[in-house]
Design a protein around this nucleic acid. Structure first.
Lengths: 250, 250
DNA sequence: AGTACTCTGTATCCGACGGAAACAGTTTAG
DNA sequence: CTAAACTGTTTCCGTCGGATACAGAGTACT
């Protein structure tokens, strides 16, 4: 079953390889892109558990084994699907400062994760990033160019933001049909056990807001950006803008 | 194969059910706890892909099907393993304010995730929280009792912090043996494509710090706590302490 | 033009996995 | 002491990812 072991070399070629020139045998009937899209359609509908090589092949009107001419295995197919589903990052909003850019960036990538609920489950394993994934990271780092943050701090910001988006996409994907929110599910578990979870019980009682859905995303994002702003302010007063401050990491 | 569909009713009994009284047939040779620990040992060693009912049964010297007398299926076994591996939350540090408590809390749960790398992959699906998981959330909400935050804001903080810990646990689990950090992996991909990723290239060049490992955790955690502190300060000036401020959510 | 080579998709096969069903042995309730 | 309930085992099945061998299709070279 699921090998889990990914052929990193072949995966690199798969994600970063250029389309080669004219070759000898019969022309392929499929495209990497078409395969990825077929897999995405299936995973969007039934999740990663519903994604089998059989079903992908059927939806493309080929045999299961034909797919292995294009893709080394299922793990690499999922990686390719992820790269295709995430797509290229949209252009940053006009005239936005770093905060506006990062705010937009996080909502954009959150939207990608929400449209493809399987994607956030596919990003749990260590993986080889594709061109699109790297382009998204590039956007974050570029937005922070003139803030005086160090190189790895900018990368840390990217990790922080994408983690938040992914995390929230999971939580919103969880509360779909039945009980509307996590509060309802928690309340059921807490009820009858108030003495074990007093603070939780109090918190659940004092909830007046009927927020739509992206509320938790907004909350966390606002806190994170506030925290980054505080750091940038510190750096700005410590050193003139445009200059690289000394790394004051402990 | 992987059903994915979890019997929520049986899972609830599994996680929250109390040990029943004297029953009729032969006494069970196994314990739920022993099964969970056996599964944890296997998953710690070989990940969730290496976890099979067969191997768990072998390590307990029983047949595979014997496990199904205790656990409805593999998905529920993983949920039980998660609950056992996370364990009960440790007591908060003596005399710490909310910030100190949340800082310690995040590092504690990060440590759990790092000790059991499979755990963060097991928390991607919507699930029924167990007693331990709920107790961890209780700790966060309790730490924020006197901060003037609303009930769902406190829950949002819990989501934010656990998401960060899980996210960073994944990233540190990724960079284990071969190339030491994400910077090295990124640098390989960026090299030769500097014109496509100029900001990323600049960021990778300006990295002097040879940080040990928890650096990204520290960075994000500090930003998040700074952001929460900013919000609490706002609330404190708007309303006297101990009083519930009006929900100023947009 | 013809031939040899290479690439494609297919058919067949395999081991491993999660789980269902039926069974035999064991312990307690009446 | 008997009947009911519960345990662990055996046997079996469908599905999955993947290896291998093969036949046809198209191109490069002589």
């Amino acid at each position: 079953m699921e090998t889990g072991g990914v052929d990193k070399k072949r995966l690199y070629e798969l994600l970063w390889g250029t389309p080669s020139g004219p070759r000898r045998g019969p022309r392929p009937t499929l495209t990497l892109d078409a395969i990825a899209r077929a897999g995405i359609a299936i995973a969007d509908a039934d999740g990663l558990e519903g994604l089998t090589m059989q079903r992908v092949a059927e939806s493309l009107a080929v045999t299961k084994m034909a797919l292995y001419r294009y893709v080394p295995g299922k793990a690499e197919l999922v990686a390719l699907m992820l790269e295709t589903a995430i797509g290229a990052p949209p252009p940053p909003p006009e005239g936005a400062d770093w905060r506006g850019q990062l705010d937009d960036w996080t909502r954009q990538i959150f939207d990608r994760f929400r449209r493809h609920p399987w994607a956030q489950a596919a990003t749990v394993a260590p993986r080889v990033p594709g061109p699109n994934e790297l382009a998204w990271v590039e956007r974050v780092v570029a937005a922070l160019s003139d803030t005086g943050l160090t190189g790895d701090e900018r990368l840390d910001v990217a990790v922080l933001l994408v983690g938040h988006a992914r995390n929230l996409a999971q939580h919103t994907a969880a509360g779909t049909a039945p009980a509307q929110g996590r509060e309802a599910a928690f309340a059921v578990l807490v009820s009858g056990r108030e003495e074990r979870f007093p603070a939780l019980d109090a918190a659940l009682r004092s909830i007046p807001t009927e927020a739509p859905g992206d509320q938790a995303l907004d909350f966390g994002l606002a806190r994170i950006l506030d925290g980054i702003q505080a750091l940038i302010s510190t750096r700005a007063t410590a050193a003139p803008p445009g200059d690289h401050p000394p790394p004051s990491r402990k």
